[in-house]
């Protein structure tokens, strides 16, 4: 297969970036999207040109590093798939593909397609810890949790923190990310003790880091590689209202 690529090139945080056109040939349909970029980079290095910088690590859809907006859609055309798990067979031979980094004020561009997502780390940090006794592993089933609740918490726990939700949102809101974390922990008995403090702190950090608010458009759940539902955002709002008006804590 052959493709015409328009790739966002930007040498550092300050520089104004622009698209650059590249041609790639001899692409196998079973290559992943990142392998296609690897191939392009080999060619660029052979020609003594600057290779395209992009974030990646596990390449199996679990680390949340890869972060490409492909033809305007975070993680590309395939639903419930990270960019690293996307294959070239999802594209038509000869297609023109635009590749951009996540765009949000809170995800400044490091270089080319790589963004600084430290803002997510500070949201996670502000969420704090859960109080459980450390030491040996507790007996299985010593804390009974109904299957439906365990499943719901597991759905939220699938979040890999890639940032696609904020990247796809017209407001650059990271509500789906915060919601996944809050919902996962507050659904389970182990996370209940600090639930009020956690939700207030995480929302306050979310706002301080410069993310926008939620208009409930649902663009986030459409691109989420783990298909996390905005039902979790409703739960986040519920938790927030409870913590804000019923607990002794302040925002």
């Amino acid at each position: 297969m052959r493709f015409t690529l328009f790739i966002w090139r930007q040498s550092n945080k300050e520089e104004k970036g622009r698209f650059k056109k590249y041609q790639v040939d001899d692409i196998s349909s079973s290559m992943s999207f990142l392998e296609m970029l690897d191939l392009l980079n080999e060619q660029l290095i052979n020609k003594n040109e600057d290779p395209v910088t992009f974030d990646h690590d596990c390449r199996e859809g679990i680390c949340g590093s890869c972060s490409l907006v492909i033809n305007g859609v975070a993680h590309g055309p395939e639903r419930g798939t990270t960019a690293c798990q996307l294959h070239m067979r999802s594209f038509k031979d000869g297609e023109t593909i635009h590749i951009e980094p996540w765009r949000a004020k809170s995800f400044p561009i490091n270089k080319d397609l790589s963004t600084n997502r430290r803002s997510f780390d500070s949201i996670i940090q502000s969420g704090g810890f859960i109080s459980i006794n450390s030491g040996s592993v507790p007996d299985a089933n010593s804390t009974p949790i109904p299957k439906t609740i365990a499943d719901k918490a597991m759905d939220a726990a699938a979040c890999i923190g890639c940032g696609a939700c904020a990247a796809a949102c017209k407001n650059s809101s990271a509500m789906l990310f915060v919601a996944a974390k809050v919902s996962q922990l507050s659904s389970l008995p182990q996370g209940k003790a600090e639930a009020d403090k956690r939700v207030l702190k995480m929302i306050s950090t979310h706002d301080k880091e410069g993310f926008g608010s939620c208009t409930n458009t649902g663009a986030c759940e459409a691109v989420c590689p783990k298909e996390i539902s905005i039902g979790h955002i409703a739960k986040l709002n519920r938790e927030f209202i409870r913590a804000a008006f019923k607990s002794d804590l302040n925002l």
């Binding site: 033809n71 859609v73 635009h98 951009e100 004020k105 949102c169 017209k170 459409a222």
Partner: peptide
Amino acid sequence: ISNPQKYAVPSRELS
């Protein structure tokens, strides 16, 4: 302010 730069390619409708 949170979303200063739009994508060059408008996405298919997600919302």
